[in-house]
């Protein structure tokens, strides 16, 4: 057990070490959310402003804090894509590179390869989010309220549920051929349906039940309610309950799927196929 924990930490350290040697890639990873989402979304939102106030957003959500709305959504988007890319897809990348096989030859429990990446991914996420928030505070008038900290348990729960989902995803991407396309599309849908860029109430009817089944939906909502005073979907208490329930389902389900995928691979012998 202690050996496994140490192994998980070694995986996290190796990931960060390895990443730090691809500087252009890291720079582009930090820049991408800015150009792809934060700045365009802010300027798009500002195009609807009346006399410098986001009156439209107030009508939708009960808050006119456009910057806060975008950045807090970004936090959950960051957690989700860390799970999709950092925890799940990076295992697939190792398989394609040929480094997964020797790792699986060690006595370390294979689950640790997800957990270790989760630790490394979180450290990286904290760094990139801190950089983003700094940018927001300096250039976009982002204001942080201390009440925001009340939403911290929601963020942590969302994180835990995403580790569960990462197990499931890792199981999938190790088996399928077009893993990149799958992760890319599924990540976008997951983020969007969780209500990161607009409230889930605006989703088409068929997608709303899916949104309400995702733990991240409640994390986004609680975060905005606590930090911006936005109108909640159901009420913070109920949403916490749903978030805990979602996590309690996602985690064991993910582990089960991962174990199954691993067995399939050992039966079919796909570990070093590339």
């Amino acid at each position: 057990m202690i050996g496994d924990v140490r192994a998980a930490l070694a995986i996290a350290r190796k990931d960060i070490r390895n990443l730090s040697r691809y500087r252009i890639a890291v720079a582009s990873m930090a820049f991408t959310p800015l150009y792809q989402f934060v700045i365009p979304a802010f300027l798009f939102g500002a195009a609807f402003a009346v006399n410098g106030r986001a009156t439209g957003l107030t009508a939708t959500l009960g808050t006119d804090d456009l910057t806060g709305f975008i950045f807090l959504g970004g936090v959950v988007a960051g957690i989700v894509s860390t799970a999709f890319w950092g925890m799940a897809m990076s295992i697939r990348n190792e398989m394609d590179m040929g480094t997964l096989e020797p790792s699986w030859l060690t006595p370390t429990s294979h689950e640790m390869f997800v957990i270790g990446r989760a630790i490394g991914g979180m450290l990286f996420l904290i760094l990139t989010q801190a950089a983003l928030f700094l940018f927001g505070i300096l250039f976009m008038g982002l204001r942080l309220r201390p009440e925001m900290l009340l939403a911290l348990p929601a963020v942590l729960l969302a994180l835990l549920s995403m580790v569960g989902i990462a197990y499931l995803l890792a199981g999938i991407v190790l088996l399928i051929r077009e893993a990149n396309f799958f992760i890319d599309t599924a990540n976008f849908l997951f983020v969007t349906i969780s209500g990161v860029s607009f409230p889930v109430t605006l989703l088409p009817g068929v997608l709303q039940p899916i949104a309400l089944a995702l733990p991240t939906t409640y994390a986004v909502d609680i975060l905005r309610v606590q930090a911006l005073g936005a109108r909640p979907l159901f009420g913070v208490g109920i949403e916490y309950g749903l978030l805990v329930a979602g996590t309690a389902i996602a985690y064991p389900l993910g582990r089960w799927a991962f174990a199954r995928a691993e067995r399939t691979m050992r039966r079919r012998g796909m570990l070093s196929q590339y």
Binding site: R6, A10, I11, K14, R17, N18, R21, Y22, P107, T108
Partner: peptide, 17 residues
């Protein structure tokens, strides 16, 4: 390839417990 030989071995030593 982007790690040194020693870093590679440190990593795998942890995986080998």
């Amino acid at each position: 390839w982007k790690l040194t030989a020693r870093e590679n071995l440190e990593y795998f030593a942890a995986l080998y417990h």
